[in-house]
Nucleic acid binder design. Structure first.
Lengths: 137, 137
DNA sequence: CTATGTGCAAATCCTTTGCATCAAC
DNA sequence: GTTGATGCAAAGGATTTGCACATAG
């Protein structure tokens, strides 16, 4: 993998922590400030390259665009149903009985993807429980 | 919601258990045997209607088409990385420390979506561990 | 110079939608 | 005869890809 200014800028942005788990599109918009000619395709290509070689992590969500995470330690995520913000959840807080699952299903388990849904602190304040925006898709 | 033959056929197929967690497309192909003129749009519309009113469940997967499940009891899923087959996993086998997660993240937790990945019994036999088909997307 | 990366646009996949027609009540 | 459901085809969003050109080593 050769060096490229664009790839460096993408990684810099991810590590800047200003946005915690940006989608490719958010990365694109922000990196465009430094590289006005960069294309969305290049952003996708580089995010996938970096994810494939373990430099960053790809967070796949059901019915939503993938997010990218500079935190490569194993952990799970919780996503706000109202604003889409994502927060990390330590892997110690979820316990999966792999042995029983393998026994009961006959599957061998390789990985788990866990995404919790809820309301972030800001949206909890903003929304009365009654008029929560219904985000189901 | 009025009665419709097509919707009945879709529900019948889901409950037939021949295919455990079919995608909309698989439902479409099979219901087409009884209703050759049915359209994919109608299948989607009816699956979503039935899921919205709780008759069936929609299983959203990362990077894969939604699946539909006649089992509406709370449970999780494990998907075979090689063939895509899905099996149910009882919710007792996964333990989520919601209290700690809420304390640490500040989020309120509403729901959890858990999809495990592994190899189903048939694919475990077929594949030597070395030449597993690499299915990552 | 040769391999790799880029920008652009077109293509892909899954899903939803607008609209005229048809079936249910 | 209204209202809701259907079929079709077109549109939608997220992501990937083919290709000619540019850049890194």
């Amino acid at each position: 993998m050769n060096y490229s200014r664009q790839r460096e800028a993408i990684l810099d942005f991810l590590r800047s922590m200003k946005v915690k788990h940006p989608s490719a599109d958010v990365v694109y918009v922000n990196v465009k400030k430094r590289f006005p000619n960069i294309s969305l395709g290049t952003v996708y290509r580089n995010l996938n390259l970096l994810a494939d070689n373990g430099t960053i992590a790809k967070v796949k969500l059901p019915s939503d665009a993938d997010r990218f995470d500079h935190n490569t330690e194993p952990h799970f995520h919780i996503i706000c149903e109202n604003c889409g913000q994502i927060e990390d959840v330590g892997s110690a807080l979820v316990n999966i009985d792999v042995v029983s699952i393998e026994k009961l299903s006959g599957f061998s388990v390789n990985a788990g993807r866990i995404v919790l849904k809820g309301l972030c602190p800001a949206c909890r304040k903003k929304l009365s429980p009654i008029k929560r925006k219904d985000n189901k898709k």
